[in-house]
Design a protein around this nucleic acid. Structure first.
Lengths: 191, 191
DNA sequence: CCTACCGATCGGTAGG
DNA sequence: CCTACCGATCGGTAGG
């Protein structure tokens, strides 16, 4: 449950600290809702001073986004690979992604959700990495014995967008993330 | 398929025209992504001139949001009420909401999706109207003969967030909105 | 509906 | 890492 090294490739401890601060702010307030001055404030310096560590706000966001997907992809693949039956493999992946998305301290993932908040040229830089992430789920879904009248591409998109937007309505207390995941797996299990 | 009077309570034709322009821009570019100057430009005037017709950007957005939910709620209730069996009623509601969300010319609904893009005090103004909208689906879901291990509140939230985020991945061509709706209804039909 | 502006905020930079 | 700025953009207003 504890995160130890979120950004292993950070080049210096100070830079890693800045990356972690920035990731938390982006996750909480979105791309446009987070200013360079906000990040500087939490890091104890003025906004302009950050440009010693980063090239631009865009480049910073892209770096955080890709590192977050790397970490998520590793955790999800590990969880799926502890099982062999197709439905079990998907259920493990869903449960892990739900955990990541609903963790209130998650630095990792809410970055995925802000796609349309981001400038268009940044979107283009992110989309390759996102496509690769989706391939993980494509493989899991393609292995399912689904009824013939369910389209696997639609099924995968529905499932992913549902999980990625779960943070919008989830409020702590009533149910745990793993109970939410269990409900999702029940609804999406067919045939 | 044609929209005739999107804003029946507009007070003047010019004001209605401005509301329609603003709704389209908010739907396309989000709350923060739409400036008062953008709206003025499309209306053929300078941004400041709009303040003869509106009180503030916030009040404009709230008005558009509530009018959009009024129109959506009417369409969805009408569609559901053409049926009696619970699963048919839900399917009709889902299909109508999907149509609204995926219509590329829709003024009506993508306003719902930008919740976290909007300032907090505006969020508070919108939430009452949204809760009432959700009650429509609450009634439809509560009438379903669902398996006992599926939580109706979670089921409803998952279904609504899934439909509301469908526009994020849907691209025209491969499938029509009603085919998407049919897939959703298949996946969410149980018991 | 325009002119002309306000105070605030933004990403980013030069020069030290 | 700071000082001191830049050009751009924002919502909104006074006065006509």
């Amino acid at each position: 449950m504890m995160k130890l090294t979120e950004f292993p490739d950070a080049a210096s401890p100070r830079r890693r600290q800045i990356l972690e601060i920035a990731a938390r702010l982006f996750a909480r307030n979105g791309y446009r809702g987070t200013s360079i001055r906000d990040i500087g404030e939490q890091a104890g310096v003025l906004g302009g001073s950050l440009y010693h560590h980063i090239k631009s706000k865009d480049a910073l966001f892209v770096e955080l986004h890709n590192a977050a997907l790397d970490a998520a992809e590793r955790r999800i693949a590990d969880a799926a690979n502890r099982h062999v039956a197709p439905w079990d493999r998907l259920a493990a992946a869903v449960s892990t992604l739900v955990d990541i998305q609903l963790d209130p301290d998650s630095i990792t993932l809410p970055l995925m959700n802000d796609f349309r908040d981001v400038p268009e040229d940044v979107q283009r830089q992110l989309s390759t990495r996102r496509d690769a992430f989706e391939d993980l789920f494509r493989g899991l879904v393609d292995a399912l014995p689904l009824p013939a009248d369910i389209d696997r591409s639609i099924y995968r998109n529905l499932l992913l967008s549902l999980i990625n937007s779960a943070g919008d309505w989830y409020r702590l207390g009533r149910m745990t993330p793993s109970e939410i995941a269990a409900q999702i797996n029940r609804i999406f299990r067919h045939g």
